[in-house]
Structures are given as structure tokens and as C-alpha cells.
Amino acid sequence: NQASVVANQLIPINTALTLVMMRSEVVTPVGIPAKDIPRLVSMQVNRAVPLGTTLMPDMVKGYA
């Protein structure tokens, strides 16, 4: 199973992502692939993302 990107903490709306905010985990449904973590750094979330939430492409500005 492919690992997805999961929030390692509460990420407030419009926050630029950093490595410490994200972890990889095998979850259902599948979200953004963990291999894309380096690409996500500095991108902003367009909503508040609670701890443990799988990041989906529509949550990150400029990803999709």
C-alpha cells in the first residue's frame, strides 16, 4: 500500500508547510503520495488541517 501525507500537528489555514508538519502513513482513503513531501514544503494549505488528517490535493494551494 502506498503511504500518504498526514498532518503531524494542527496546520492553520494559509500556513506554509514544513517537514515537521507532515508524516507519511498508509491510510484510507489515499491522499497526496508521501513521495511528494519535498514538493509540498513551502506550499500553503487553504483550510485548517487537524492533527492526523490526510492531506488531499485540494487542500494545498498550487498542488493539484
Rank of each mutant, 00 (worst) to 15 (best):
N1W: 15
N1Q: 11
N1P: 15
N1G: 11
N1D: 14
N1K: 11
Q2L: 15
Q2N: 05
Q2A: 08
A3W: 15
A3E: 08
A3L: 14
A3H: 12
A3G: 06
A3Q: 12
A3V: 13
S4D: 01
S4A: 03
S4Y: 03
S4M: 02
S4C: 03
S4I: 01
V5A: 09
V5Q: 01
V5K: 01
V5D: 00
V5G: 02
V5S: 04
V5M: 02
V6F: 02
V6S: 03
V6L: 05
V6I: 06
V6W: 02
V6T: 06
V6A: 03
V6M: 10
V6N: 01
V6R: 04
A7L: 04
A7N: 01
A7I: 07
A7W: 02
A7C: 04
N8W: 05
N8T: 13
N8F: 05
N8I: 07
N8V: 11
N8P: 02
N8E: 11
N8R: 12
Q9C: 03
Q9N: 08
Q9S: 08
Q9W: 09
Q9M: 13
Q9I: 10
Q9P: 01
Q9K: 14
L10I: 13
L10K: 13
L10D: 15
I11Q: 01
I11M: 05
I11F: 02
I11G: 01
I11A: 01
P12S: 08
I13P: 14
I13M: 11
I13C: 03
I13H: 12
I13E: 15
I13W: 08
N14F: 09
N14C: 04
N14V: 03
N14M: 09
N14H: 12
N14T: 05
T15I: 09
T15M: 07
T15Q: 09
T15H: 09
T15Y: 09
A16Q: 09
A16S: 11
A16K: 06
A16R: 05
A16L: 15
L17N: 00
L17S: 01
L17C: 02
L17E: 00
L17W: 01
L17V: 04
T18F: 04
T18C: 04
T18P: 00
T18K: 08
T18M: 06
T18S: 07
T18G: 05
L19N: 14
L19R: 12
L19W: 13
L19G: 09
L19D: 11
V20G: 15
V20E: 14
V20Q: 11
V20I: 12
V20W: 08
V20T: 14
V20F: 11
M21F: 05
M21E: 02
M21S: 05
M21H: 12
M21V: 05
M21T: 03
M21W: 02
M21N: 12
M21Q: 06
M21P: 01
M21Y: 05
M22A: 00
M22C: 03
M22T: 02
R23K: 12
R23C: 04
R23D: 05
R23A: 14
R23G: 10
R23L: 07
R23V: 08
R23Y: 06
R23Q: 07
R23W: 03
R23M: 07
S24A: 13
S24E: 12
S24Q: 13
S24N: 11
S24C: 03
S24D: 08
S24P: 10
E25T: 12
E25I: 08
E25Q: 15
E25D: 08
E25L: 06
E25F: 07
V26C: 03
V26Q: 08
V26A: 15
V26D: 12
V26S: 12
V26L: 14
V27A: 06
V27M: 07
V27F: 02
V27K: 09
V27S: 06
V27H: 04
V27E: 02
V27W: 03
V27N: 03
T28D: 13
T28M: 13
T28K: 15
T28N: 13
T28P: 01
P29I: 09
P29W: 04
P29L: 04
P29R: 05
P29Q: 06
P29F: 04
P29M: 06
P29V: 06
V30E: 12
V30L: 12
V30T: 15
V30H: 15
V30G: 10
V30Q: 14
V30N: 12
V30S: 15
V30M: 10
V30P: 13
G31C: 03
I32Y: 02
I32S: 01
I32P: 01
I32C: 03
I32V: 08
I32L: 06
P33H: 12
P33A: 15
P33D: 15
P33Y: 06
A34D: 14
A34H: 12
A34T: 09
K35S: 14
K35F: 15
K35P: 07
K35M: 13
D36T: 06
D36E: 14
D36R: 04
D36S: 09
I37Q: 07
I37A: 07
I37N: 01
I37L: 09
I37D: 01
I37E: 03
I37F: 03
I37M: 10
I37G: 04
I37P: 00
P38W: 10
P38S: 08
P38G: 11
P38L: 07
P38R: 05
P38K: 06
P38M: 05
R39A: 13
R39G: 09
R39C: 04
L40Q: 00
L40M: 08
L40A: 00
L40E: 01
L40H: 00
L40K: 01
V41A: 04
V41Q: 11
V41N: 05
V41H: 07
V41T: 09
S42I: 03
S42F: 13
S42K: 10
S42Y: 12
S42V: 03
S42A: 14
S42G: 14
S42R: 08
M43V: 04
M43K: 07
M43G: 04
M43H: 10
M43T: 05
M43E: 09
Q44A: 15
Q44K: 13
Q44F: 07
Q44M: 14
Q44D: 05
Q44G: 05
Q44R: 07
V45C: 04
V45H: 01
V45E: 01
V45P: 03
V45T: 14
V45G: 01
V45A: 06
V45F: 01
V45N: 03
N46Y: 11
N46F: 10
N46G: 15
N46P: 03
N46E: 11
N46C: 05
N46T: 10
N46W: 09
N46H: 11
N46I: 13
R47A: 09
R47D: 12
R47K: 07
R47V: 12
A48K: 11
A48N: 11
A48P: 14
A48R: 10
A48L: 11
A48T: 13
A48G: 10
V49R: 03
V49C: 04
V49H: 02
V49T: 05
V49A: 06
V49F: 02
P50R: 12
P50K: 12
P50G: 14
P50I: 08
P50T: 11
P50F: 09
P50E: 07
P50Q: 15
L51E: 14
G52Q: 04
G52Y: 06
G52W: 05
G52N: 14
G52F: 05
G52E: 05
G52M: 06
G52L: 05
T53L: 12
T53N: 08
T53H: 15
T53C: 05
T53E: 10
T53D: 13
T54D: 01
T54H: 02
T54K: 04
T54M: 04
T54I: 10
T54N: 02
L55V: 07
L55A: 00
L55T: 01
L55P: 00
L55Y: 01
L55D: 00
M56N: 06
M56C: 03
M56V: 11
M56K: 09
M56P: 01
P57K: 08
P57M: 09
P57H: 13
D58R: 05
D58V: 10
D58L: 09
D58F: 12
D58W: 07
D58K: 08
D58I: 11
D58T: 09
D58Y: 12
D58S: 12
M59P: 00
M59R: 03
M59G: 03
M59I: 06
M59Y: 11
M59K: 02
V60M: 06
V60L: 08
V60C: 03
V60A: 02
V60D: 00
V60F: 06
V60I: 13
V60T: 01
V60E: 00
V60P: 01
K61I: 10
K61R: 13
K61N: 15
K61L: 11
K61Q: 12
K61H: 15
K61Y: 14
G62K: 07
G62F: 09
G62C: 04
G62R: 05
G62I: 04
G62D: 13
G62S: 11
Y63N: 04
Y63G: 04
Y63V: 04
Y63S: 04
Y63R: 03
Y63E: 03
Y63T: 04
Y63Q: 05
Y63C: 03
A64L: 15
A64G: 10
A64N: 14
A64R: 03
A64V: 11
A64K: 03
A64I: 08
